[in-house]
Structure formats: structure tokens, C-alpha cells
Nucleic acid binder design. Structure first.
Length: 558
DNA sequence: CAATTCGGGGGG
DNA sequence: CCCACCCCCCGAATTG
């Protein structure tokens, strides 16, 4: 059952040494040499789990199309293990890990690439930190890996943590492959969209015509010149007109009855497209028909991914029109349905909530029939209130109803919140650990509200911490499910033309020939259920997807 | 002058 | 309408 493991390490000159491993992580045979990592990766039997320092180190081989079934990313694992051990902030790099084992001074990690930087060159010797004492890279790798196996085995739930490390590694692999593939992006469609929304491109980077027109309408409505992109001016203008708004946020302006509001809201909408996804963005990020994001697996504390530049996880709906499948191909856009409440049902073990989540249908709708007389929105707000730690408003009453009917689930997040407030460690289902509160988060700094001594600044900070840890256990466990889902999907698409091209927390896009789309949709659904079984064992909770097979991303959502 | 903060938008 | 959680990114204003 357990896949054979091999290790590979890359030397400073770009050559590789590799060997099969024993169960304990030591070399089972004398290491061999290869001219480059790709040659080494081709030497092991199919299905091998490759142990390597970091997936970035072999990104070139992966981009060249070498088939790797599984991996174990030692530096990704080190970060998770350090967190589990309460050693947040320690460098995760192999040199640092080795130095810690040997009791030597710990070198810092190399700085992360800045957003605008090009992809770091693969064999940039100067960028690779030197191992302590000139240790051979494979020796160092095996020493750290063996120690990681023992550290994992010594934890309270070694099986779960092993699964998390495997999931992190799979995520690194998927991220590297998606970075290389890119999201199909039609620059011509994008430019036409910009023309349509903003007017034809003015020469020399001037303000688009439509924005100038709307700014003129705003000024005309006030009777004097107001620049819509300067909140202070807009605020003053509305106050002068007798509308005591607190900010110029869209939701607040929408309640104001004044002729400037409509053009102003339209200005904001288009200004956003212009600055964040306009021609500059297109020039910077789309090349040869693909938008290449640089995913950062585990970039958020909860384990969710972030991206390094390009804003790949914030593509506005209107811009999704430019995301098109190649001719004859389709985009399979799959969205995990009501993921967070399903995860809450699974991790908390609440039998009543699990019974609801054991259905594939809309969970909020089902919940609303049991508790909120069919009002789906109220049911959804109640669940979100529980998961986010709502403190005020109408939702609190709904939350009380939820607590009465699903006490185990609500107690689960309440306990996570209480642990956070008391400064205790909080972990996800598989064992990702919540980073500690920042020093200075204790409420001693910052301004004191007027009107004497506040009720409790420290208490406010503790409650904020509680909301964070409350959400962490759900969002973090959901991120783990998503990683396992990605890993399963990747394996089932291997060897087919289909390519994973996008991942956003609970949503994946697969680009594939039209005739493969139905099979891909089935593979996504199967991956979701497999991830649920792996992560949560015997739980009856289902993890269905909403799947759309489309030529254009914008057509995926109703 | 560059770096940081603020206000506002986007995604889940 | 917001709220409560996790993020990214922009331009302007402010600060060092």
C-alpha cells in the first residue's frame, strides 16, 4: 500500500544524487548520480514518493514534464512541524533545520521573491544557502528527513500529521504545475472588455474616457469639481450637501439620495477594473495566452493559499470573461458546495449537523427547513455567525437557534474561541497549528477610546484572538480537505491531456478537451469524496461540488 | 526621497 | 446595508 520512497538532492552545480529509502528514511542503497534532477526522477519506478528539499528545487524538471506521482517536501514539512512544536518564526529551510539538529547557529531563510520579480533561476548558486560545514546535500536531506519522521511519530496524532505533511507536499506539487501551466487568458477578449467598459485606450496612459465622463457627472451633480478617487473630497462634498456619511464606501453611498451617487458608484466600479485589471495588469501578467500566477501554498495562517503578485485569487467576475478554453477544449469549473459548514459537521462530530451534511443538496436550504422556516439566507447567516464569531446584530438570535439544535458543532467552535482567548494552542483537524498572537496584540498600544477607561482593551484583544482561533479550526480544516482533494484530482488526471489550471480555496478549474469534460467532472466529484474519507474517516458528511462545463469562466456562475 | 499607512475595492 | 473570519492590491496621503 505504502508507496516506495526515494530521495533526491540537487548539488550546487545542478547535478543530482538520489537513492531509494528504508522505512526509517535512511539510504537503502548507495546513492547514484545524475546530470540533473529530471534524469534522477526518471530512474525510480512509477508511483514512487520522492523526498526532496523543496518542490521549487525540481520545478524545472516538473515543467519539462517528468511524471512524479507523489512527493514529500521537507521544507514545507518543516514549517508545519515547527508550528506544531510551537516554534513559529524559526527558519524552515534545510540549512536551518540541519543546524537545529546539530546545535549550530541557525541561518535565516533566504528572502522571499518580491511580487514583481521574475521566476528565480533554477540553478542560481548564489541564491542557495550553504549547508553547515559544507555537508553534502543528500546527506543533509536524509538527516533532516529522518528526524522529521521521528518528530511526526512523537505527536499525539501521528497519522493525521503524516497525512497533513503529505497533503502539503501534494499542494506544493500542484502549485508548481499550475504555475507552469497558467490559466488560459484571452488578451484580445480582455482588451475588448476594457474598451467596452472604459472607452478606447487613450494615448500615453491618460485616464480612460469613461472615467473622465463619470468624474464630470459627479462634479456636475455637486456643482463644483470633485475628484471621485479622493475619499476626503467626496466625503466633504456629501457632508456639504447635507448627508452625514461616515465613509464613502459603496454600501453606505447606496443609501444616499443624491444625483452624484449613481455616477460615483459606476466610477468606483470601473476605476477598480482600470487600476487592478487594466492594460498594465494585462501587460505584466498575461503572456502567450496564459495568466501565470505564482501560488504560495500555505501562504495564509489557516493553510489557505495566497499568490505572489497578479492577484490570481481576486479575479473580479466581470474580468472572468477573458478566461476562455482553447478551441475544442472546455473549462470544468467546480465549486465545493457549502464547504465550511460541512467541514464543521465533520470535525465537530455533531450527529444532527452531520445528518444534514450527509445530503448532497444545498445545506443551507436544508438547515433553513429545520430551523429557520425555510429562510435560506437566515440559515446561512447563522452558520457564518457561528464560524466567524459574530458579536452583534440580528444574526446573534439565529445563532442561538443553531446552538440549541446543533450544540456539539457550536460548542466545538466556542471551545476553539475560548482556547484562543486564554492563549492556548489551537490546531486544525490534521494538526496545523494556529500561530501565536503577535506581540503588541495585547491591546496595550493604540489609542484609547474617549470617555474614560475602556471596559477592557485587553478583553477586546482577547476576544479578537478568540474569533481568529474560532475561525481557524474550520477554515484551516477546510483548507486541508481542499489539499487532499487537489492531490486526488491530480492523480486521477495524470496521464490525460487535462490540466489543472486554477485553485481558489474551494474551487478548481480543469482545462481539458471537450470530450473529456464529463470524465473530469466525475473525477472532481470523486476527489472531493475521497478527500472527505481520508481527512475525516467514517463521517457521513458528503462533499459535493457544483460543476459547470463551460468555454468561458464568466459563464460558470449564474 | 522611500517606506508605511489609510481608504477603498476585489476574492473566498 | 453592515456585522464576524482569511486574504491581495491599488493610489493617495502621511511619515521617517
Amino acid at each position: 500500500m505504502e508507496a516506495a520512497r526515494w530521495a533526491v538532492a540537487v548539488a550546487a552545480d545542478g547535478s543530482a544524487r538520489y537513492c531509494p529509502l528504508t522505512r526509517e528514511g535512511t539510504a537503502a542503497e548507495a546513492p547514484r548520480s545524475a546530470a540533473d534532477p529530471a534524469a534522477a526522477l526518471r530512474a525510480a519506478p512509477p508511483g514512487t514518493r520522492w523526498v526532496w528539499r523543496s518542490t521549487a528545487e525540481v520545478a524545472g524538471a516538473l515543467a519539462a514534464g517528468v511524471d512524479v506521482a507523489r512527493c514529500y517536501d521537507v521544507e514545507a514539512a518543516e514549517a508545519v512541524l515547527l508550528g506544531h512544536e510551537g516554534a513559529f518564526g524559526e527558519p524552515r529551510g534545510l540549512p536551518a533545520a540541519l543546524a537545529r539538529l546539530r546545535g549550530l547557529p541557525v541561518p535565516p531563510d533566504p528572502p522571499a521573491p518580491a511580487a514583481g520579480d521574475a521566476q528565480p533561476s533554477l540553478f542560481e548558486d548564489s541564491a542557495r544557502p550553504v549547508l553547515p560545514g559544507g555537508t553534502d546535500p543528500l546527506t543533509a536531506l536524509l538527516e533532516v528527513y529522518g528526524a522529521q519522521l521521528r518528530r511526526t511519530a512523537a505527536t499525539e496524532h501521528p497519522g493525521r500529521l503524516t497525512l497533513l505533511l503529505a497533503a502539503e507536499s501534494a499542494g506544493a506539487l500542484v502549485a508548481a504545475e499550475m504555475d507552469a501551466a497558467g490559466l488560459p487568458w484571452r488578451a484580445d477578449v480582455h482588451l475588448a472588455l476594457l474598451d467596452e467598459l472604459l472607452g478606447p485606450a487613450p494615448p500615453g496612459g491618460l485616464e480612460p474616457r469613461r472615467l473622465t465622463e463619470l468624474a464630470g457627472e459627479v462634479s456636475a451633480a455637486f456643482g463644483f469639481r470633485v475628484r471621485p478617487d479622493l475619499p476626503a473630497q467626496v466625503l466633504a462634498a456629501f457632508r456639504g450637501a447635507g448627508f452625514p456619511v461616515r465613509s464613502t464606501r459603496s454600501w453606505e453611498l447606496r443609501q444616499v439620495d443624491h444625483p452624484a451617487v449613481a455616477p460615483l458608484l459606476e466610477y468606483k466600479r470601473l476605476y477598480r477594473v482600470h487600476t487592478a485589471h487594466g492594460r498594465n495588469w494585462l501587460r505584466s501578467w498575461v503572456h502567450e495566452g496564459r495568466f501565470r500566477a505564482r501560488y504560495v501554498p500555505g501562504g495564509a495562517a489557516s493553510g489557505r493559499w495566497t499568490t505572489n503578485g497578479g492577484g490570481a485569487l481576486q479575479i473580479p467576475r466581470v474580468v472572468r470573461r477573458a478566461v476562455r478554453a482553447d478551441p475544442g477544449w472546455r473549462l470544468v469549473v467546480a465549486d465545493a458546495a457549502q464547504l465550511e459548514p460541512r467541514v464543521l459537521a465533520a470535525v465537530s462530530g455533531d450527529p444532527a449537523l452531520a445528518e444534514v451534511a450527509a445530503q448532497e443538496g444545498d445545506l443551507y436550504a436544508a438547515l433553513s427547513l429545520r430551523l429557520f422556516s425555510g429562510d435560506r439566507e437566515r440559515a446561512k447567516l447563522a452558520v457564518l455567525g457561528a464560524v466567524y464569531g459574530q458579536t452583534s446584530g440580528e444574526g446573534l438570535r439565529h445563532l442561538a437557534g443553531l446552538r440549541g439544535r446543533y450544540p456539539v458543532a457550536v460548542r466545538y467552535v466556542d471551545e476553539a474561541a475560548e482556547a484562543g482567548e486564554r492563549g492556548r494552542l489551537v490546531r486544525t483537524h490534521l494538526g496545523r497549528t494556529c500561530p501565536p498572537a503577535e506581540a503588541g496584540d495585547d491591546g496595550l498600544g493604540g489609542e484609547v477610546p474617549e470617555g474614560g477607561e475602556p471596559p477592557s482593551r485587553r478583553g477586546a484583544a482577547a476576544r479578537a484572538r478568540g474569533r481568529f482561533t474560532r475561525n481557524f479550526v474550520v477554515q484551516g480544516s477546510a483548507a486541508e480537505w481542499a489539499l487532499l482533494m487537489l492531490a486526488a484530482l491530480r492523480r486521477s488526471l495524470a496521464g490525460t491531456p487535462a490540466e489543472l489550471v486554477f485553485f481558489q480555496h474551494d474551487e478548481v478549474i480543469v482545462h481539458c478537451p471537450a470530450e473529456q469534460a464529463a470524465q473530469v467532472a466525475a473525477a472532481v466529484r470523486a476527489a472531493g469524496e475521497a478527500a472527505g474519507r481520508l481527512a475525516f474517516g467514517a463521517s457521513p458528511v458528503r462533499f459535493p461540488f457544483t460543476v459547470a462545463v463551460v468555454e468561458c469562466y464568466a459563464d460558470a456562475k449564474a
